[in-house]
Amino acid sequence: MTMAQIQSAPTETRHAPAPAVFELIEVEQVFAVPKPGRGLLSRDTVGLRALDGVRLTVRQGASIALVGESGSGKSTLLRVLLGLDAPSGGRALYRGKPIREARAHGTAFARDVAMVYQDARGSLDPRMTVGQLIAEPLRHFGIVPKSGEAARVAELIDRVGLPRDAANRYPSGLSGGQVRRVAIARALASEPSVLVADEAVSGLDVSTQAQLLTLLQGLQRDMGLTLVFITHDLGVASYLCEEIAIMYLGRIVETGPTDAVLEAPAHPYSAALRAAAPQFFEPIPEPLPGEIPSPLDLPKGCRFSSRCPAARDDCRLRDPQLGALDAGRAVACLHPLTSKGAQTPEIR
Protein backbone atom coordinates (compact mmCIF):
# COMPACT_ATOMS: atom_id res chain seq x y z
CA MET A 1 0.00 0.00 0.00
CA THR A 2 1.34 3.43 -0.80
CA MET A 3 1.25 6.43 1.44
CA ALA A 4 -1.36 8.05 -0.77
CA GLN A 5 -3.71 5.17 -0.14
CA ILE A 6 -2.94 5.15 3.53
CA GLN A 7 -3.67 8.81 3.90
CA SER A 8 -6.84 8.71 1.89
CA ALA A 9 -8.45 6.63 4.60
CA PRO A 10 -11.49 8.62 5.71
CA THR A 11 -11.06 10.59 8.90
CA GLU A 12 -13.63 12.52 10.88
CA THR A 13 -12.17 15.89 10.04
CA ARG A 14 -11.76 15.54 6.30
CA HIS A 15 -14.59 14.80 3.89
CA ALA A 16 -12.65 14.06 0.71
CA PRO A 17 -8.90 13.89 0.47
CA ALA A 18 -7.49 17.22 -0.62
CA PRO A 19 -5.19 17.15 -3.65
CA ALA A 20 -1.57 16.38 -2.90
CA VAL A 21 0.82 19.31 -3.09
CA PHE A 22 3.94 17.24 -2.61
CA GLU A 23 4.39 13.55 -3.16
CA LEU A 24 7.65 11.84 -2.37
CA ILE A 25 7.86 8.27 -3.60
CA GLU A 26 10.83 6.19 -2.54
CA VAL A 27 13.06 9.24 -2.63
CA GLU A 28 16.74 8.57 -2.20
CA GLN A 29 19.54 11.04 -1.90
CA VAL A 30 23.04 9.69 -2.03
CA PHE A 31 26.03 11.96 -1.70
CA ALA A 32 29.55 10.98 -2.67
CA VAL A 33 31.74 11.71 0.30
CA PRO A 34 35.45 11.09 0.85
CA LYS A 35 36.04 7.52 1.90
CA PRO A 36 36.96 7.41 5.59
CA GLY A 37 40.65 6.74 6.04
CA ARG A 38 41.55 7.35 2.40
CA GLY A 39 45.05 8.51 1.57
CA LEU A 40 45.91 12.16 1.21
CA LEU A 41 45.84 12.08 -2.59
CA SER A 42 43.23 9.39 -3.02
CA ARG A 43 39.94 10.29 -4.65
CA ASP A 44 38.04 7.31 -3.30
CA THR A 45 34.52 8.14 -2.35
CA VAL A 46 31.67 6.25 -0.81
CA GLY A 47 27.96 6.84 -1.12
CA LEU A 48 26.31 8.46 1.91
CA ARG A 49 22.59 7.75 1.95
CA ALA A 50 21.17 10.94 3.38
CA LEU A 51 17.67 9.89 2.33
CA ASP A 52 16.75 6.27 1.88
CA GLY A 53 13.33 5.36 0.61
CA VAL A 54 11.36 8.35 1.85
CA ARG A 55 7.62 8.25 1.23
CA LEU A 56 5.57 11.28 2.13
CA THR A 57 2.41 12.94 0.89
CA VAL A 58 1.63 16.54 1.78
CA ARG A 59 -1.96 17.47 0.98
CA GLN A 60 -3.38 20.91 0.29
CA GLY A 61 -4.13 22.69 3.55
CA ALA A 62 -2.29 20.15 5.68
CA SER A 63 0.14 21.04 8.42
CA ILE A 64 2.88 18.52 8.81
CA ALA A 65 5.82 18.46 11.19
CA LEU A 66 9.05 16.79 10.17
CA VAL A 67 10.75 15.71 13.36
CA GLY A 68 14.10 14.08 13.94
CA GLU A 69 17.48 14.57 15.54
CA SER A 70 20.56 15.94 13.84
CA GLY A 71 21.68 13.69 11.04
CA SER A 72 18.21 12.28 10.40
CA GLY A 73 17.94 13.90 6.95
CA LYS A 74 15.42 16.66 7.65
CA SER A 75 17.38 19.35 5.86
CA THR A 76 18.20 17.10 2.90
CA LEU A 77 14.51 16.32 2.55
CA LEU A 78 13.80 20.03 2.64
CA ARG A 79 16.21 20.69 -0.21
CA VAL A 80 14.45 18.03 -2.28
CA LEU A 81 11.03 19.51 -1.48
CA LEU A 82 12.18 22.95 -2.56
CA GLY A 83 13.74 21.59 -5.73
CA LEU A 84 17.19 22.78 -4.76
CA ASP A 85 18.57 19.26 -5.20
CA ALA A 86 17.36 16.55 -7.53
CA PRO A 87 16.92 13.27 -5.69
CA SER A 88 19.30 10.57 -6.83
CA GLY A 89 16.51 8.02 -6.76
CA GLY A 90 12.72 7.84 -6.57
CA ARG A 91 10.26 10.53 -7.56
CA ALA A 92 9.60 13.89 -5.96
CA LEU A 93 6.42 15.47 -7.30
CA TYR A 94 4.83 18.90 -6.91
CA ARG A 95 1.18 18.85 -7.97
CA GLY A 96 1.90 15.76 -10.08
CA LYS A 97 5.01 17.13 -11.81
CA PRO A 98 8.63 16.48 -10.88
CA ILE A 99 9.68 19.24 -8.50
CA ARG A 100 12.85 20.06 -10.40
CA GLU A 101 10.86 20.53 -13.59
CA ALA A 102 8.26 22.68 -11.87
CA ARG A 103 11.01 24.83 -10.47
CA ALA A 104 12.83 25.21 -13.77
CA HIS A 105 9.79 26.59 -15.64
CA GLY A 106 8.67 30.07 -14.75
CA THR A 107 8.23 31.56 -11.33
CA ALA A 108 4.99 29.81 -10.37
CA PHE A 109 6.70 27.25 -8.13
CA ALA A 110 8.92 29.78 -6.37
CA ARG A 111 5.90 32.00 -5.84
CA ASP A 112 3.69 29.23 -4.53
CA VAL A 113 6.20 27.54 -2.21
CA ALA A 114 7.74 29.98 0.25
CA MET A 115 10.48 29.26 2.70
CA VAL A 116 11.38 30.54 6.15
CA TYR A 117 15.00 29.75 6.82
CA GLN A 118 16.43 28.54 10.08
CA ASP A 119 18.98 31.34 10.30
CA ALA A 120 16.55 34.20 9.75
CA ARG A 121 19.13 36.91 10.40
CA GLY A 122 21.55 35.35 7.94
CA SER A 123 18.83 35.20 5.31
CA LEU A 124 18.31 38.98 5.36
CA ASP A 125 20.62 41.48 3.64
CA PRO A 126 21.94 43.66 6.48
CA ARG A 127 22.15 46.69 4.17
CA MET A 128 18.46 46.71 3.32
CA THR A 129 15.73 48.12 5.52
CA VAL A 130 12.87 45.93 6.59
CA GLY A 131 10.63 47.77 4.12
CA GLN A 132 13.02 47.09 1.24
CA LEU A 133 13.41 43.46 2.30
CA ILE A 134 9.67 42.89 2.21
CA ALA A 135 9.23 44.85 -1.04
CA GLU A 136 11.83 42.71 -2.80
CA PRO A 137 9.66 39.61 -3.33
CA LEU A 138 6.65 41.83 -4.12
CA ARG A 139 8.61 43.38 -6.98
CA HIS A 140 10.30 40.16 -8.06
CA PHE A 141 7.00 38.37 -8.57
CA GLY A 142 5.12 41.49 -9.71
CA ILE A 143 2.52 41.06 -6.98
CA VAL A 144 1.37 44.68 -6.79
CA PRO A 145 1.88 47.73 -9.03
CA LYS A 146 4.61 50.10 -7.87
CA SER A 147 2.04 52.54 -6.55
CA GLY A 148 0.56 49.96 -4.21
CA GLU A 149 3.87 48.68 -2.90
CA ALA A 150 4.17 50.81 0.21
CA ALA A 151 0.65 49.98 1.29
CA ARG A 152 1.21 46.23 0.81
CA VAL A 153 4.49 46.38 2.76
CA ALA A 154 2.69 48.13 5.61
CA GLU A 155 -0.05 45.50 5.47
CA LEU A 156 2.47 42.66 5.72
CA ILE A 157 4.35 44.35 8.55
CA ASP A 158 1.06 44.62 10.37
CA ARG A 159 0.07 41.05 9.59
CA VAL A 160 3.19 39.58 11.21
CA GLY A 161 2.89 41.83 14.23
CA LEU A 162 5.87 44.11 13.71
CA PRO A 163 5.67 47.73 14.88
CA ARG A 164 4.66 50.21 12.15
CA ASP A 165 8.00 52.02 12.21
CA ALA A 166 9.86 48.76 11.53
CA ALA A 167 9.87 49.48 7.77
CA ASN A 168 12.69 51.99 8.17
CA ARG A 169 14.80 49.87 10.49
CA TYR A 170 17.67 47.55 9.56
CA PRO A 171 17.85 43.88 10.61
CA SER A 172 20.69 44.68 13.01
CA GLY A 173 18.29 46.85 15.02
CA LEU A 174 15.77 44.08 15.50
CA SER A 175 15.50 41.38 18.16
CA GLY A 176 15.68 37.69 17.33
CA GLY A 177 11.91 37.36 17.39
CA GLN A 178 11.40 40.41 15.18
CA VAL A 179 13.91 39.12 12.63
CA ARG A 180 11.89 35.91 12.35
CA ARG A 181 8.78 37.99 11.76
CA VAL A 182 10.49 39.81 8.90
CA ALA A 183 11.44 36.45 7.38
CA ILE A 184 7.82 35.31 7.67
CA ALA A 185 6.56 38.56 6.09
CA ARG A 186 8.96 38.06 3.17
CA ALA A 187 7.75 34.51 2.72
CA LEU A 188 4.11 35.65 2.72
CA ALA A 189 4.75 38.48 0.26
CA SER A 190 4.48 36.24 -2.80
CA GLU A 191 1.06 35.02 -1.64
CA PRO A 192 2.15 31.40 -1.43
CA SER A 193 -0.10 28.46 -0.70
CA VAL A 194 2.72 26.44 0.87
CA LEU A 195 4.98 27.60 3.67
CA VAL A 196 8.06 25.54 4.43
CA ALA A 197 9.75 26.51 7.68
CA ASP A 198 13.02 25.11 8.96
CA GLU A 199 13.28 25.36 12.77
CA ALA A 200 11.49 28.71 12.56
CA VAL A 201 11.04 29.01 16.32
CA SER A 202 14.11 27.26 17.69
CA GLY A 203 16.69 29.06 19.77
CA LEU A 204 14.18 31.64 20.96
CA ASP A 205 12.93 32.40 24.45
CA VAL A 206 9.69 30.67 25.33
CA SER A 207 7.64 33.87 25.38
CA THR A 208 8.97 34.91 21.95
CA GLN A 209 8.41 31.38 20.71
CA ALA A 210 4.83 31.48 21.97
CA GLN A 211 4.25 34.78 20.15
CA LEU A 212 5.56 33.34 16.86
CA LEU A 213 3.66 30.09 17.19
CA THR A 214 0.35 31.86 17.72
CA LEU A 215 1.19 34.02 14.70
CA LEU A 216 1.98 31.00 12.51
CA GLN A 217 -1.13 29.18 13.64
CA GLY A 218 -3.26 32.21 12.87
CA LEU A 219 -1.70 32.56 9.41
CA GLN A 220 -2.20 28.90 8.65
CA ARG A 221 -5.84 29.06 9.67
CA ASP A 222 -6.71 32.40 8.07
CA MET A 223 -4.88 31.92 4.78
CA GLY A 224 -5.41 28.17 4.43
CA LEU A 225 -1.67 27.66 4.09
CA THR A 226 -0.14 24.27 3.66
CA LEU A 227 2.55 24.10 6.31
CA VAL A 228 5.66 21.93 6.30
CA PHE A 229 7.36 22.60 9.61
CA ILE A 230 10.74 21.18 10.48
CA THR A 231 11.35 21.05 14.20
CA HIS A 232 13.05 18.99 16.85
CA ASP A 233 10.53 20.02 19.49
CA LEU A 234 7.59 17.64 19.91
CA GLY A 235 5.66 20.22 21.91
CA VAL A 236 5.87 22.66 18.98
CA ALA A 237 4.91 19.90 16.53
CA SER A 238 1.88 18.92 18.56
CA TYR A 239 0.72 22.52 18.94
CA LEU A 240 1.12 23.57 15.32
CA CYS A 241 0.77 20.51 13.11
CA GLU A 242 -2.02 18.03 12.57
CA GLU A 243 0.31 15.47 11.06
CA ILE A 244 3.77 14.37 12.00
CA ALA A 245 6.55 12.49 10.24
CA ILE A 246 9.35 11.21 12.43
CA MET A 247 12.70 10.65 10.75
CA TYR A 248 15.64 8.51 11.76
CA LEU A 249 18.79 8.12 9.71
CA GLY A 250 17.37 9.19 6.36
CA ARG A 251 14.05 7.42 6.58
CA ILE A 252 10.60 8.31 7.82
CA VAL A 253 9.98 5.74 10.54
CA GLU A 254 6.50 6.83 11.56
CA THR A 255 3.79 9.14 10.24
CA GLY A 256 0.22 9.90 11.14
CA PRO A 257 -1.99 12.36 13.00
CA THR A 258 0.24 14.13 15.54
CA ASP A 259 -1.98 13.51 18.55
CA ALA A 260 -2.42 9.81 17.83
CA VAL A 261 1.28 9.26 17.16
CA LEU A 262 2.44 11.10 20.27
CA GLU A 263 -0.28 9.57 22.42
CA ALA A 264 0.74 6.03 21.53
CA PRO A 265 3.89 5.89 19.41
CA ALA A 266 4.17 2.73 17.35
CA HIS A 267 7.87 2.97 16.55
CA PRO A 268 10.27 2.48 19.47
CA TYR A 269 12.25 5.49 18.26
CA SER A 270 9.15 7.70 18.36
CA ALA A 271 8.50 6.37 21.85
CA ALA A 272 12.06 7.23 22.90
CA LEU A 273 11.80 10.75 21.48
CA ARG A 274 8.48 11.20 23.22
CA ALA A 275 9.94 10.02 26.51
CA ALA A 276 13.02 12.22 26.23
CA ALA A 277 10.99 15.42 25.80
CA PRO A 278 11.09 17.29 29.12
CA GLN A 279 7.84 17.07 31.07
CA PHE A 280 7.01 18.77 34.34
CA PHE A 281 8.03 16.72 37.36
CA GLU A 282 8.27 13.44 35.47
CA PRO A 283 11.44 11.54 36.32
CA ILE A 284 13.98 11.78 33.52
CA PRO A 285 13.54 8.47 31.68
CA GLU A 286 16.27 5.97 30.93
CA PRO A 287 17.72 7.43 27.73
CA LEU A 288 18.41 5.49 24.56
CA PRO A 289 21.83 3.91 24.63
CA GLY A 290 24.49 5.33 22.34
CA GLU A 291 24.11 7.88 19.58
CA ILE A 292 22.75 7.96 16.07
CA PRO A 293 25.06 5.67 14.04
CA SER A 294 27.07 6.97 11.10
CA PRO A 295 25.06 6.84 7.86
CA LEU A 296 28.20 5.37 6.28
CA ASP A 297 28.00 2.39 8.58
CA LEU A 298 24.32 1.56 8.96
CA PRO A 299 23.42 -1.38 11.18
CA LYS A 300 22.26 -4.47 9.31
CA GLY A 301 18.51 -4.96 9.13
CA CYS A 302 16.53 -2.22 10.84
CA ARG A 303 18.64 0.92 11.14
CA PHE A 304 17.35 1.52 14.65
CA SER A 305 18.15 -1.99 15.87
CA SER A 306 21.51 -0.96 17.35
CA ARG A 307 19.76 1.34 19.88
CA CYS A 308 16.32 -0.20 20.09
CA PRO A 309 15.30 -1.42 23.54
CA ALA A 310 12.81 -3.83 21.93
CA ALA A 311 14.96 -5.25 19.12
CA ARG A 312 14.58 -8.96 18.38
CA ASP A 313 16.74 -11.24 16.30
CA ASP A 314 14.92 -10.65 13.00
CA CYS A 315 15.33 -6.87 13.45
CA ARG A 316 19.03 -7.32 12.75
CA LEU A 317 18.30 -9.19 9.52
CA ARG A 318 15.32 -7.54 7.87
CA ASP A 319 14.96 -3.86 7.02
CA PRO A 320 11.35 -2.81 7.71
CA GLN A 321 9.59 -0.50 5.23
CA LEU A 322 6.99 2.12 6.07
CA GLY A 323 3.70 0.20 6.17
CA ALA A 324 0.11 1.03 7.12
CA LEU A 325 -0.89 0.68 10.73
CA ASP A 326 -4.38 2.12 11.17
CA ALA A 327 -6.33 5.40 10.95
CA GLY A 328 -3.93 7.18 8.65
CA ARG A 329 -0.88 5.97 10.50
CA ALA A 330 2.15 4.19 9.10
CA VAL A 331 5.23 2.78 10.76
CA ALA A 332 8.49 1.20 9.66
CA CYS A 333 8.96 -1.44 12.34
CA LEU A 334 8.75 -5.21 12.36
CA HIS A 335 7.31 -5.27 15.86
CA PRO A 336 5.42 -2.00 16.34
CA LEU A 337 4.43 -1.03 19.86
CA THR A 338 0.70 -0.95 20.30
CA SER A 339 -1.35 1.19 22.60
CA LYS A 340 -2.64 -1.82 24.51
CA GLY A 341 0.84 -3.15 24.96
CA ALA A 342 -0.42 -6.65 24.16
CA GLN A 343 2.02 -7.10 21.33
CA THR A 344 4.76 -5.05 22.89
CA PRO A 345 7.91 -7.07 22.56
CA GLU A 346 9.65 -7.94 25.76
CA ILE A 347 12.34 -5.48 26.60
CA ARG A 348 15.58 -7.24 27.03
Binding site: V206, S207, A210, Q211, T214, L234, G235, V236, Q279, F280
Partner: peptide, 13 residues
Protein backbone atom coordinates in the same frame (compact mmCIF):
# COMPACT_ATOMS: atom_id res chain seq x y z
CA UNK B 1 4.56 29.46 27.55
CA UNK B 2 5.98 25.95 27.91
CA UNK B 3 4.40 23.71 25.31
CA UNK B 4 3.78 20.28 26.68
CA UNK B 5 3.01 17.52 24.24
CA UNK B 6 -0.67 17.58 23.44
CA UNK B 7 -1.28 21.12 24.67
CA UNK B 8 -3.34 23.15 22.20
CA UNK B 9 -3.75 26.25 24.30
CA UNK B 10 -1.11 28.89 24.18
CA UNK B 11 -1.48 32.47 25.27
CA UNK B 12 1.42 34.50 24.03
CA UNK B 13 2.52 37.23 26.44
Amino acid sequence: CVLEIGSKDLTAP
